[in-house]
Amino acid sequence: MAEKEKKKGGFFQSVKEFVYGVAAHDSARFALKTRASMEHLFILITMGDMLGVPILPPYYSLRLLPYVVPQISTWKRRMLREKDLTDGLA
């Protein structure tokens, strides 16, 4: 019985997620996208010298380094990946 209950909850959860996917996912994705591209800008202006952009990052930017460590390789990739029209289509 309990298991059946759980399954039912699982089904409603799935429907909820489906509806979220239909209606809200794009908006949430956009917000996160905007946030992430600001994050990339942030890393650029605080640690742009990592990519040879001639910025003198002030002393204190090194203090911020630990927090961005996990993002550095994807940041570099995103900064340097060649993009074209078809990237922006969806």
């Binding site: 809200a24 908006s27 949430a28 917000a31 996160l32 946030r35 600001m38 800008l41 202006i45």
Partner: peptide, 19 residues
């Protein structure tokens, strides 16, 4: 740069609202 972080936070909040 704090201003930038705060703007980012705005969008975080929006995503949180949506989710």
């Amino acid at each position: 740069i704090t201003k930038l972080r705060e703007q980012m936070r705005e969008y975080d909040q929006v995503a949180a609202v949506m989710q």
